[in-house]
């Protein structure tokens, strides 16, 4: 037994224990991520999912399109794209907060934190289904909104749109991770998610172009997720090539990565604080 272990202990320069650790972290990231998303995201019930994820965004799109029409500013497609992409923040923020802070309500947090699981894999694993869901919701909203309003989105633009929305969902989920860490501490997830959603609605150029708002608001908006993705999406629909919008997409992805790193650091801090000061009331 030990002999076999020793023979297999080194392969390609990576010690066996380390390889085992990487494999375990990979499984926590993928398999664990999907199972815990199903267990903790309590909107997966169709009676909640369809109204909040598939119907509400259409209302939001219609509301702003009609306001735009009556005020005589902006085209239908401006509001359609802005609101569809911005609506990704609902699944990304709420689901991310749900799947992390929800552990507190289930009283599973203490058990999870008493396992040796790699924390980065644990939390990033939960964010992957959140990103996929955010992508689906925003893409569906854009598609359905376009049909309802009769806005023509060229077929050639869809691959670029799909990619842009994927990046938007990922970066918004990065912010969601940070917000989830705060929600763990302050014990309220919905309040925080609602506030962040409101901020994103105003600051990201969803309904008001950033060059028409006060400079400080535009600057703040450029530090938030979604802003660059919404701009890129509008340009793609207007005929821009992917390489033309690449700088915007890179900036969007970069911001998301920064928020994700901050979120992971915050989660680490919350766990350390809890061990020191019993702040999480773990069961």
């Amino acid at each position: 037994m030990t002999g076999r272990h020793e023979v297999g202990a080194r392969q390609g320069g990576i010690p066996a224990a380390r390889r085992g650790g990487i494999r375990a972290a990979w499984r926590v990231l993928t398999v664990g991520g999907v199972i815990s998303f199903r267990g903790l995201f309590n909107w997966l019930n169709p009676y909640i999912y369809v109204p909040t994820m598939l119907v509400s965004p259409i209302f939001q799109i219609l509301l702003f399109v009609y306001i735009g029409r009556s005020a005589g500013v902006g085209s239908d497609s401006f509001y359609l794209i802005g609101n569809a992409v911005q609506y990704a923040s609902i699944p990304c923020l709420f689901a991310m907060a749900n799947t992390i802070a929800g552990e507190r309500w289930m009283q599973t947090l203490g058990i999870v934190l008493s396992t040796p699981a790699n924390r980065v894999a644990l939390f990033i694993g939960r964010s992957l289904p959140v990103i996929a869901n955010g992508w689906f919701v925003a893409t569906f909203s854009l598609f359905a909104g376009a049909r309802v309003l009769g806005v023509d989105l060229p077929v050639s633009a869809w691959p670029g749109i799909a990619l842009t929305i994927a990046i938007a969902s990922a970066s918004c989920t990065g912010l969601g991770l940070l917000q989830a860490a705060l929600a763990l501490r302050v014990r309220s997830t919905a309040v925080l998610s609602n506030v962040v959603f409101g901020v994103l609605l105003v600051f990201t150029g969803t309904n008001v172009a950033l060059d028409t708002v006060p400079e400080w608001m535009a600057s703040a908006g450029r530090l938030m997720p979604l802003t660059h993705a919404i701009e890129a999406c509008r340009e793609i629909v207007a005929g821009a090539s992917l390489s033309a919008v690449a700088p915007l997409l890179l900036r969007e992805a970069g911001l998301g990565a920064v928020f994700a790193v901050l979120g992971l650091a915050a989660l680490r801090w919350v766990e350390a604080q809890s061990r020191r000061h019993a702040t999480l009331e773990l069961q």
Binding site: V31, G39, L44, A117
Partner: peptide
């Protein structure tokens, strides 16, 4: 170590017993 506390909380309610166990099997590698 393994840790078990009393009471009816501490499980993922909407998951099956099997999925609860599968999840923690992953966390415990």
């Amino acid at each position: 170590i393994g840790y078990v506390f009393g009471g009816d909380r501490g499980l993922y309610e909407r998951l099956s017993a099997l999925d609860n166990l599968r999840y923690f099997a992953e966390l415990y590698a």
